Amino acid sequence: MFRTFGQNIPALSVGANVPAVSVAESSEAIEATIELPGVEEKDIKINLDGNRLVISGEKKEESTKDEKDWHVEERSYGSFYRAMALPFTPEDGAVEAHLDKGVLHVVVKKPTALAQKTKTIEIKTGAPPKA
């Protein structure tokens, strides 16, 4: 499932066009952490299209004063886009997003039917009963 994350995106260096993403899965949810330094909350869009989670937006260029002669400027600006096909269609209200210090945290809760529940099996002493 995660191998297809970002598939069909041109090979670009990580920057404004393709933000770095970490994805983890638990029995209750899929969690994605996306690095978006310098991007404001209002410039980020998160959409669900069936079972596809789409994160897009734009990092806007800061105005620079012409009184400086720039020798090197390595900051990147422009639009970005990441999409991930989920192995399920999320229920309404199952997606939460928080932006904290340039890192976007997205949690997609799994449908109740898919949530894996751990069951503890009792171990009995002695030989098993004869069938």
Rank of each mutant, 00 (worst) to 15 (best):
Q116W: 05
S79Y: 09
T120Y: 08
P19A: 09
Y77M: 04
D69Q: 14
G78M: 11
I55A: 04
I9M: 14
L48Q: 01
G50M: 04
H71C: 10
H98R: 15
V108M: 00
E41F: 07
I121D: 05
I123C: 01
T64L: 13
T4C: 08
P90R: 03
L99D: 06
T64V: 14
F5A: 09
N47E: 09
M1W: 00
E96S: 15
V39Y: 05
G126A: 08
S63C: 04
E73A: 15
K68M: 13
E40C: 04
F88M: 10
S56Q: 12
A85L: 12
N17C: 09
G57D: 05
W70R: 11
K59T: 06
L48D: 04
V103K: 09
R82S: 08
S13L: 14
A20S: 13
V21K: 02
G78H: 08
I34P: 00
G126E: 07
G78F: 06
A85C: 05
E28K: 12
P10M: 11
G93D: 10
G126M: 09
V54W: 07
T89R: 07
Q7M: 12
F80L: 08
A85F: 03
L12E: 15
T125L: 09
K68P: 00
P90Y: 00
K68R: 15
S13R: 13
V103I: 12
L48Y: 02
E91G: 07
I123Y: 07
L53Y: 02
F88S: 07
V14Q: 11
P111R: 05
V95N: 02
A127P: 03
A94D: 07
H105A: 06
E58W: 00
K45T: 12
K60Q: 07
V39D: 00
E67Y: 13
E96A: 12
E62L: 10
